[in-house]
Computed example of a mutant assay.
Amino acid sequence: MSAFIADWLNILLRWAHLVVGITWIGTSFYFIALDLSLRAREKMNPGVFGTAWQVHGGGFYQVEKYTVAPEALPEDLQWFKWDAYLTWVTGFGLLLTQYYFNASAYLIDKSVLDLRPGEAILISLLTMGGGWFLYDRVCRSRIGQNTALLAIVVFLGIVAASYMLTNVYSGRGAFIHVGALVGTIMACNVFMIIVPNQRKIVASLLKGEAADPKYGKIGKQRSVHNNYLTLPVLVMMVSNHYPLLTGHPHSWLLVALILVIGAMVRHFINRHEGGDHFREISWTLPIAAIALVIAILMTAPRVDPAMAGRAVADADVTAIVRTHCVACHAATPTHEGFTEAPKGIMLESLEDVRRYAALVDMQAVKSEAMPLGNETGMTEDERHILGAWIAGQ
């Protein structure tokens, strides 16, 4: 695939992914907030669990939720599913065009594990499919009947998968696959559980039968899971822009911290919207803050002893940059994946390197984000030499 076509596919898929993803997230946030705002009233229709009064856009709305389902199926029933389906489809399309078609550059790092592109792609597919299967089995087991225990098991499962992925893929490949795994779980919750259960309830109504409340209960459980996973998965999906996350030697621990931060913030917002007093939910904010501070400290810049006081000749830096950087970062790149320098950054001279020294330091010294997939085999000593030269400028 030519770089020009790949770029346009990437742009269109990313645009579509953002649009449908925002819609799905907004729907999830709204319905959880709606559910928590329901109140029992003196006068309610038969079978109604609770109602909520809301105001938006200059209008007032009254919303009802049935304990199980209304006695008869309304003619204009609206289904909320396509935003979830299309979010996964466009996300997988991005994974395909960005990571599968360019597996050697974006997915594989031979210093981590020497894989062939086909092997890397197979591991990707098995991780997403197997992750959903294991998650679903746990939810259906006795563990799934205990909310706190289930949350811990799911958390540990995602962290374990993150550890595995960081020992298989490049830094950015591992992080994006944690997001893909969680996103697959969320989409499958809708496709495999929530919507099918809703269809079972609809089928009962069409037969004139009473709907089984267990289907709504199970659907609600998975919907809540999706809601709590939303904030962490958003960070995973933009992680390729931040080498301080993807390039960290213990990035799987950062995944664990991101899960904690996202879950705590989401719980605080949910319970606040549900009417809980601040003192009842304030415990979530210190936990999120502590996790954030740990993440910041983990990623804080450190001076490598190998760089301290090391004299580096300009010629050595020029040789390193020409070997490992200029194939992509040039006015006319020779790398088959690029028709122009990524982000417009060219490193064809020492003045260029000085101009972008902070970015080079972050991407190629303090992390191994560059070269992509370490295709050129940049060594640790070369990174130390480059870092020492930048520190002396």
Rank of each mutant, 00 (worst) to 15 (best):
V233M: 14
M192F: 11
A6R: 09
I345L: 05
L347H: 10
K207S: 15
T184W: 02
T376D: 02
L234T: 01
R322V: 07
A330H: 06
G26M: 03
H177N: 13
R116N: 12
S251V: 02
V255Y: 00
S251W: 00
A187S: 03
V326Q: 03
T332Y: 11
K343G: 08
A210N: 15
L9D: 00
R39F: 14
A295E: 00
L12D: 10
G387E: 02
L73T: 01
P243A: 03
T339N: 13
N167D: 14
I390R: 06
I281N: 02
F29S: 13
V20C: 05
Y169A: 08
A288D: 03
R271T: 13
W389R: 09
A33V: 10
G118V: 09
K110H: 15
S124Y: 10
Y242E: 05
L297E: 02
L229N: 10
K214E: 15
S2M: 06
A6K: 07
A357R: 08
M1N: 11
H384G: 05
G183M: 00
T332H: 10
A151I: 11
S2I: 10
I5G: 08
A203R: 12
L297W: 08
L94F: 03
F191D: 05
E375R: 03
S223R: 06
H241K: 15
E336N: 09
M44T: 06
I201V: 04
Q393G: 14
H248D: 03
E71V: 08
V202K: 05
M307A: 09
D35F: 12
G275M: 02
F133A: 12
L77D: 04
V321H: 04
L86C: 02
T97D: 08
S2L: 02
L150I: 12
V365L: 14
P301F: 05
S251F: 04
W53P: 07
M264C: 03
I258G: 12
V112S: 03
